[in-house]
Nucleic acid binder design. Structure first.
Lengths: 173, 173
DNA sequence: CCGAAGTGTACAAATATTAGACAATCCGTC
DNA sequence: GACGGATTGTCTAATATTTGTACACTTCGG
């Protein structure tokens, strides 16, 4: 399941791109690469990408990683379920942690260990959330809302934007 | 908004519990504490807890943190939106990272800096996801499904468990 | 003890969903 | 380049859900 995946690698350093391709080719069905992060979103419209390996230090010289976090957010805004694995400089764990809090699936420090990288990508792909049936996820969302309202059905209904009776209906199922 | 919150602190060390209470009292509306993680879930049924500060090294002597991760998962299973901040031993960043990947909101290493702890809790509370209207979250879910099916409406409809026509209807809105 | 707020239930009207069908179109294969 | 299979966009009639409104009952704080 995870080995017929398409991986998109985004890094401004062509050497890294080549190394990644070398490491991942064979392990995954298709490896796409882009050198400029601006190319990521347009590419996602055209290609069926399953996971993105994203460098955190775009724009040579600017090493704050801010750029990388921005692109992470941009990707997640448009594709909330896309697993993104971060590529960070060695020892920049602090940045990686910020990335994880933003919702990245995992992170790998450069230089990486090939088999570890493959393993992490496979892992992230396996953890990729299933698309639930609409009614199941609706039920889950309703439970969350009621949870937050501490059982107050009227308030939960208002929050959810449905009538109280509908909430009762939906819960009966 | 974040300062009228109820915080639940779970740690088997009473000293930590006292220290946490001392640090958080005043900054948040109500501080609850439990010494045994088994008490967490039952307590959540009774009390309107907004955030959990969870120790990772329960069961004295067993310091793998496994226990903590297990309780994190248990909490998230029942309360997917509950922000959980992890309390880890200093330098056990590896464990904290695993926790973040599991969905923890943040982590704090012991011994902590009081103002940093307060800040992180406030931050996590502020990031707490709003409960969306049912139709909005349905729309978002539908977009995800179509995204995953790369635009194939028939497949997306099957995945979502609704008829193709319904999918068309819902998208028209 | 009152009133405000919430619950559980009911009804009829307005809407939405469903299965099934149709021609038109796209796409990979031969 | 023609073929067959899958997909699209649209329609219908039968079924189901949702909505507003209403009513009696409970809970809870002042």
């Amino acid at each position: 399941m995870t080995d017929n995946a398409t991986i998109l690698v985004a890094d401004d350093n062509p050497t890294i791109l080549t190394a990644a391709r070398y490491c991942l080719e064979g392990a995954f069905a298709r490896i796409l690469t882009v050198q400029r992060p601006e190319e990521i979103l347009p590419l996602l419209q055209q290609e069926a990408v399953d996971l993105i390996l994203l460098d955190m230090n775009f724009s040579l010289g600017v090493n704050t990683g801010r750029e990388g976090l921005m692109w992470l957010q941009a990707i997640q805004k448009r594709h909330p379920d896309m697993p993104v694995v971060l590529l960070t400089a060695y020892a920049d764990v602090e940045l990686a942690v910020r990335g994880l809090k933003e919702g990245a699936a995992d992170f790998v420090t450069k230089p990486w260990d090939n088999s570890e990288l493959r393993h992490k990508l496979r892992d992230a792909l396996a953890r990729k959330a299933e698309v639930e049936r609409l009614d199941e996820m609706e039920a889950a969302h309703i439970r969350r809302a009621i949870d937050r309202c501490h059982g107050n059905m009227s308030e939960a209904a208002k929050l959810l934007g449905v009538s109280r009776q509908t909430l009762y209906n939906k819960m009966r199922r």
